[in-house]
Simulated scan of single mutants.
Amino acid sequence: MDATLRNTLEQMPKAELHIHIEGSLEPELIFALARRNGVVLPYASVEALRSAYAFTNLQSFLDIYYAGASVLLTEPDFYDMTMAYLARAHDDHVRHVEIFFDPQTHTARGVAFATVIGGIYRALQDARAQWGMSGALIMCFLRHLPEAEAFATLEDALPYRDKFIGVGLDSSERGHPPEKFTRVFARCRALGLHLVAHAGEEGPAQYITTALDDLHVERIDHGVACLQDPALVERLVRQQTALTVCPLSNIKLCVFERMENHNLLALLDAGIAATVNSDDPAYFGGYLNANLLAAFEALPLTREHAHRLARNSFAAAFLPPAEKAAYLREVEAFFSQQP
């Protein structure tokens, strides 16, 4: 990759739409919070924990992900984790972020919902004040748990409805199709919440279709399996339904064997509104710019693809129209000044 393209990728304004905040918890901070909270970890050191990040599939990652989250107990813990991510995002010229959080991971351990959302939300407010970075929260339901537990989580969340804009669906995809959550998503839709869902990562293209038809989602998280179904591709292009693609995650979890095999270029060339994101960057090897650089190093992606990815990231964001238009103008201004 030439230096000009690298500079464009690093400096261009961008939005991140697929970031699990618990997945930004770096090993160093895990150990610091463990010491602060008196939590005993099953790893002797930062190096031992990091060396365990050799995942064979999504479930092998989730086992370590949930263990890492065990150190999060107080509102300052959630604040510190979120601010650490937001500082890295700011360094990557992320102008807007929509953060996933998994309250069930914490409430199951006895941590109050107010503690979880309070720390994360306060960090977003501080990032706006310090850097002018806008942000919002999307609460995810864990799909390996029953729908009844998702309903209970929604009820816990409603007193804090002003602090999150949407709901999503994450965790183990295989064996947990989107339609398992049709009723709770209908309830969220009636409440005026934005709707997204993980689909077509390890699961089949059919999961993307049912997420659209049964859950009525507005965006698909991952979605890389869509190319299995030409009719689905045509639909995604026609409706301009965005995919929040996470290249390094896809390699780390063996969705693709090597970055050279990734289908990001094929998605873009098909006319799909793909975006690039970091997913769980502490575990998968890099934040947003690292994902862009890895994809552009391995695939014959060009400056025009970078321009499209920057535009797509804001076009797919759940922003007020005036704010979205301002960010899109920022993208155009940046690319008009670049060689």
Score class of each variant (00 low, 15 high):
148 A>Q: 14
136 A>R: 13
160 Y>K: 00
234 E>Q: 15
185 F>P: 04
147 E>N: 06
219 R>H: 11
231 A>E: 03
246 C>L: 04
229 D>F: 05
228 Q>E: 03
234 E>V: 12
166 G>E: 01
203 G>S: 08
151 F>G: 14
213 D>A: 15
200 G>P: 13
176 H>A: 13
136 A>Q: 05
197 A>M: 03
243 L>K: 07
211 A>M: 01
233 V>E: 02
164 F>K: 01
150 A>G: 08
189 R>Q: 14
192 G>A: 10
161 R>S: 11
140 C>W: 10
255 V>Y: 14
178 P>T: 12
150 A>Y: 03
258 R>G: 09
222 H>E: 02
186 A>S: 12
250 N>F: 00
139 M>K: 11
161 R>I: 02
217 V>A: 04
171 S>R: 04
185 F>A: 05
220 I>C: 15
131 W>P: 00
222 H>F: 03
184 V>N: 01
195 L>V: 00
222 H>D: 03
194 H>Y: 06
137 L>P: 08
219 R>G: 12
217 V>K: 00
232 L>H: 12
201 E>Q: 01
205 A>V: 01
193 L>K: 00
205 A>D: 11
146 P>H: 14
145 L>R: 08
224 V>Y: 04
222 H>K: 13
145 L>A: 15
193 L>R: 01
258 R>P: 02
147 E>F: 11
207 Y>G: 04
163 K>R: 15
180 K>G: 06
156 D>E: 14
208 I>N: 02
176 H>K: 12
244 T>E: 11
